[in-house]
Simulated assay, not measured.
Amino acid sequence: MHMADLGDVRLHYRIDGPDDGAPVVFVNSLGTDLRLWDPILPLLPDGLRILRFDKRGHGLSTCPAAPYAMGALVSDCEALMDMHGFKDVMFVGLSIGGMIAQGLAVKRLDLMRAMVLSNTGAKIGTKAMWAERIEDVQTGGIEKLADAVMDRWFSRDFHQGAELELWRNMLTRQEDAGYAGCSAAISGTDFYATTATLRLPTLGIAGAEDGSTPPDLVRETVNLIPGSKFHLIRKAGHLPCVEQPEEYARVLTDFMRATGHI
Rank of each mutant, 00 (worst) to 15 (best):
A196N: 01
A122H: 13
D151T: 00
M115F: 04
D147E: 14
R152P: 03
D38H: 14
L232M: 11
G237N: 14
H261N: 09
A79L: 11
Y13H: 14
T195V: 02
D76H: 02
D82P: 01
G207K: 04
S187V: 04
A146Y: 09
R173W: 06
T253D: 00
E243P: 02
V222Y: 04
N28G: 07
M112C: 10
K235N: 15
G207E: 06
L239P: 04
A206V: 07
V24I: 15
S29R: 00
V25G: 05
D190R: 04
A114M: 08
V149E: 08
G93E: 07
R199I: 10
K235H: 05
A105G: 07
T139G: 00
D254K: 02
A69D: 14
A101T: 03
G103V: 12
I233W: 00
M3E: 08
A196T: 08
P245S: 09
G103C: 10
G98H: 04
P18A: 04
G17L: 08
H238S: 11
I96H: 02
I100S: 05
A146C: 13
G71T: 04
P201D: 07
I233H: 08
F154S: 08
C182M: 10
H159D: 05
W37D: 09
R257Q: 15
P214R: 02
V116K: 09
V106W: 00
M99C: 10
G188Y: 00
A131G: 15
W167R: 02
R199K: 15
F255Q: 06
I262D: 09
H84V: 08
G181D: 06
I40W: 03
R113W: 03
P45T: 03
P201W: 05
G71P: 01
A206I: 11
A162Q: 12
I40N: 03
G57R: 10
V92I: 04
H58M: 14
F86H: 05
A101C: 02
G93F: 04
E163V: 02
V25P: 07
P39S: 06
F191C: 13
L200A: 13
G140T: 07
Y68S: 04
S183Q: 10
N169A: 12
F255G: 12
V137I: 06
D33C: 10
Q138M: 10
R199P: 02
K127I: 14
T172E: 05
H2G: 06
G71V: 09
A114V: 03
I100Y: 13
I124M: 13
I40S: 04
A249S: 08
A65Y: 01
A206T: 00
T189E: 09
C182D: 12
